[in-house]
Amino acid sequence: MTLAQKGRRITVLALVCLAAVYVRALAFTPVERLQGPAQKIFYLHVPAALWTEAAMILVGLAGIFYLFLKDPRLDRFAEASAEVGTVFATIVLTTGPIWGKPIWGTWWTWDARLTSTLFLFFLYVGYLLVRGAVRDPGLRARYAAVLGICGMCLVPFIHLSVFLFRTLHPQPIILKPSAPSLPGSMLATWLFSLAAFTLLYVGFVTQRYAVSLTRDAQRGERTGRA
């Protein structure tokens, strides 16, 4: 089985899981008392938000290892992870307003968490733009690694500003220091969704990695012939 096929299978599996998450969320999980059905989007929103951040951290870690090992595979992984992170950030930024409209009464608020995801999105876009602006593969990988490492270190600062800034956002209810205050069935659905998103991330990254592998090989042949 080629890498691309593996990636496709993992992605399909992830999408099936995600569908199952929503069957469970809509049919078998209680409706939240205050927020009503709008809360259901939370099963999509929060795992995507977590993976948006995790993907940036993985880009940074790949960057650190790249600078020491100079292995092009690490750079390809960083590129894939950044693109998938961009997609996940887009999911967060679309589901946020859909939830925000019925609950906050407005599509967009400059809520710190939504804003920080927006800036994470800009960070990804900047990272991908830098990649696009450098032609030499070695130089591109090095620049991307430097930017990725800085991006990784920026994530906690964006988080820190969340806690300091006045925020409208529901306080984190899953990853807070004390025990999760979410009812058991909701938590189970959420954890299931997180697992589905993890699979989705792996599937997307694997496919994207396979694409850059093919692209590098083709580019090599083309310039080789010229």
Partner: peptide
């Protein structure tokens, strides 16, 4: 060398 794969110079 510069470049990678088949395009290596």
């Amino acid at each position: 060398t510069f470049g990678e794969g088949g395009g290596q110079v």
